[in-house]
Structures are given as structure tokens and as C-alpha cells.
């Protein structure tokens, strides 16, 4: 810095004469040559500092940001692609599932129909068996009732005969009956 200021002072001393000559032009434009030089140097210095320390950092940040954006875009693109693939896959799976579901429904309907048919056949057979059993039971009961009626009739006839004959049979008829029995027995012998 010291060197710069020294050089500047020297340059200022040597150029003082030239300034005298050209001073009129710059003055007419309202420019202070010294200030102009100084500002130019400061500008260059600033430019150098910025280029040395600030711009790289900013550019790095911008580059990183750009990279992040690019990656994000790529990720978004990939995600979109994956989503499309997933959607296609899901669509295919849904289609397959619908097909399988249709098959299952068809199979279930067939099996249900077969079950219903089988159950109907079984029910008919069971109903027929019940009817047969009932008819058999009824027939047996009818036979038993007939037998019971027959027996009861015989018993009633026997009882009635016993009472009627006991009351109406007198000695004379009894003797005739005995004679007839003895004769019948004699014929047999």
C-alpha cells in the first residue's frame, strides 16, 4: 500500500506538467484526473477483490443451487417416470385382479350352483325317505290297529256270548248241548 501511494505521488509529480497541458480538456469536462485515476484504481481493486473473494463464493452457491435444481428436476422427472410406471403397473395389476375376481366370481357361482343342486337332490332324497318311512309306519300302525280291532272284537264277542249264553242257557238246552258234545266226541273216537 505504501508502495502504491509512493508511486502515485511520483506519478503525480511527473505528470503535473502534462496536466497543465491537458488540464484544460478534463476541466472542461468537469473531471478531476487525480480523482479519476484514484477511482479507477479503487474500482479495479474492488473488482479484483470481488473477483477474488466474492464472485467465487457466489458462483459456487449459484452452481450448487443450479445443481440442486437440476437434481430436483431430475428427481422430479424420475419420480414422474416412476409414478407413470407405477400407474401402469397398478393398472396392469388392477386389470389382472379384475380378471381374477371375475374368474373367482364365476367359479363361486358355479360352485354355488352345484352346491344348491346337490342340496336340492339331498333334500329330495331325504324328503322321499321321510315319506317312505311315514308310509311304512302308517302301514304298520294300520295293521296293528286292525289286529287290535280284531282282537277287541273277538273279546267283545266272547264277553257278549258269555253273558248272553249264561243268562239264556237253561238246563234243557244245556243237556242237549252236552248230549251233542258227547255224541260228537263218540263219533270222533
Amino acid at each position: 500500500m505504501h508502495t502504491i501511494l509512493t508511486n502515485f505521488a511520483t506519478a503525480e509529480a511527473t505528470g503535473h506538467a502534462a496536466e497543465e497541458a491537458s488540464g484544460n480538456v478534463l476541466d472542461s469536462l468537469g473531471i478531476d484526473p487525480k480523482l479519476f485515476v484514484f477511482q479507477l484504481i479503487a474500482f479495479l481493486l474492488l473488482l479484483w477483490l470481488l473477483n477474488k473473494y466474492v464472485f467465487p463464493v457466489l458462483m459456487k452457491a449459484v452452481d450448487e443451487r443450479q445443481k440442486t435444481i437440476d437434481e430436483s428436476l431430475q428427481a422430479a422427472h424420475d419420480a414422474e417416470k416412476q409414478a407413470a410406471e407405477a400407474e401402469a403397473k397398478i393398472e396392469a395389476m388392477l386389470k389382472k385382479a379384475r380378471g381374477e375376481a371375475a374368474d373367482i366370481v364365476t367359479t363361486a357361482k358355479d360352485e354355488a350352483g352345484a352346491l344348491v343342486t346337490k342340496a336340492e337332490e339331498r333334500s329330495k332324497a331325504q324328503a322321499q325317505r321321510i315319506v317312505d318311512d311315514a308310509q311304512s309306519t302308517i302301514a304298520k300302525e294300520v295293521i296293528a290297529a286292525r289286529k287290535a280291532l280284531h282282537n277287541e272284537t273277538i273279546e267283545l264277542v266272547a264277553q257278549a256270548t258269555e253273558k248272553v249264553v249264561g243268562k239264556t242257557l237253561d238246563g234243557k238246552i244245556d243237556n242237549k248241548l252236552i248230549e251233542a258234545s258227547l255224541n260228537h266226541s263218540g263219533d270222533k273216537a
Binding site: V157, E162, V165, G166, L169, L177, S181, L182
Partner: peptide
């Protein structure tokens, strides 16, 4: 009731009415 039952050694003749009724009952 009526009729006669004759029992001799080795033989029996039952011609009573009750026997006939009983044979009907047993049938």
C-alpha cells in the same frame, strides 16, 4: 256256563262253553 268237562285217567273231554270261548280268545 254250559256243556260238560269229563276227566278220566289218561283222557279229558272239555266240551264246556267257557273252553270254547277261551279257545276263540286265544285265537
Amino acid at each position: 256256563i254250559g256243556g260238560v268237562r269229563v276227566e278220566t285217567p289218561g283222557k279229558t273231554l272239555d266240551a264246556t262253553i267257557i273252553r270254547k270261548l277261551n279257545s276263540i280268545r286265544s285265537a
